[in-house]
Simulated scan of single mutants.
Amino acid sequence: MATVLIAGCGDLGCQLGSQLSQKGHKVYGIRRNIEALPDEITGLECNLFRPICDLPDKIDYVFYIVSADKYKDIDYYHAYVLGVKNLLHALQDHHVKRFFFTSSTSVFGQSEGEWVDESSPTEEHGFSTRRLIEGEQLVLESDIPGTVIRFGGIYGPGRTHLIDLVREGKAHCMENVWSNRIHSTDCVGIFTHLMELNEQTADKVDDIYIGVDNQPTPSCEVYEWLAEQLSVPEVEHQEPSENTRLMRSNKRLSNARLRATGYEMHYPTYQDGYIELI
């Protein structure tokens, strides 16, 4: 069994750690407050934004699942650049099989509803995407084999913001704007699947994957479906201006590369995931 280090044990990190522990792996979790960790994760209480504390001698896999505390450049720099630098430095004498870095599909700048895959160009359109791309480059250019997973909009237990907006009558949607999402259970499933695939044949694991479900969907269709399921009034539709269209994500993301590895979605469409939450 493998020894796994999870940097950033929030919701996804704890779910992943618990799943891997149940499969027999030894799991360590870096967190500033380790009292919040489940029992099956051995806590390492340290701050990623400072020189890293002592790590276990044997580490096979690393999952970096850190998010910024605030929407500010300094917070994004800490979360996606400084923390990565510090951890990679601390791991330089370890023989890590693969470093998995959690990124976002926001690094894609396409905004005309076009299809996007891992080969599509990224674009720095603000400090947040600039810092994400910096973090990706640190991982991919490291001596440690690295894989970047760019997730779409994550929803699931504890992530019901859209449902709440629709239920409270506070939601409005932009016409002709595509959206892409993924259930948190599938985020964890993808992490586990790629680690197990790496154990079998490391060469089969690519350097970048898009993590979304099987069904890109116009935002208004999702909102209307939610309103119907919740038995609330229809959501207000708005025609986006050129400025709002450029500011909002509007692309169709392909998960073909991920599915080609053999991964099957627990929640392949938004209906599958949201109906359970409702």
Rank of each mutant, 00 (worst) to 15 (best):
Y155A: 03
Y155E: 09
G156N: 00
P157N: 04
G158E: 07
G158M: 12
R159P: 04
T160D: 03
T160S: 03
H161F: 13
H161Y: 09
L162D: 08
L162I: 15
I163H: 00
D164C: 11
D164M: 14
D164A: 12
D164H: 14
L165N: 15
V166H: 02
R167M: 08
E168K: 15
E168A: 15
G169H: 05
G169A: 11
G169E: 08
A171G: 06
H172A: 13
M174P: 00
M174D: 09
N176Q: 15
N176E: 13
V177F: 11
S179L: 04
S179W: 03
N180Y: 07
N180S: 14
R181Q: 12
R181P: 04
I182M: 09
H183F: 07
H183Q: 11
T185F: 08
D186I: 02
D186C: 08
C187W: 02
C187H: 05
G189Y: 00
G189C: 03
I190E: 02
I190D: 07
F191M: 09
H193E: 10
L194Y: 01
L194C: 10
E196Q: 09
N198P: 03
Q200G: 05
Q200E: 14
T201P: 00
T201G: 01
A202V: 01
A202H: 07
A202C: 04
D203A: 04
D203Y: 02
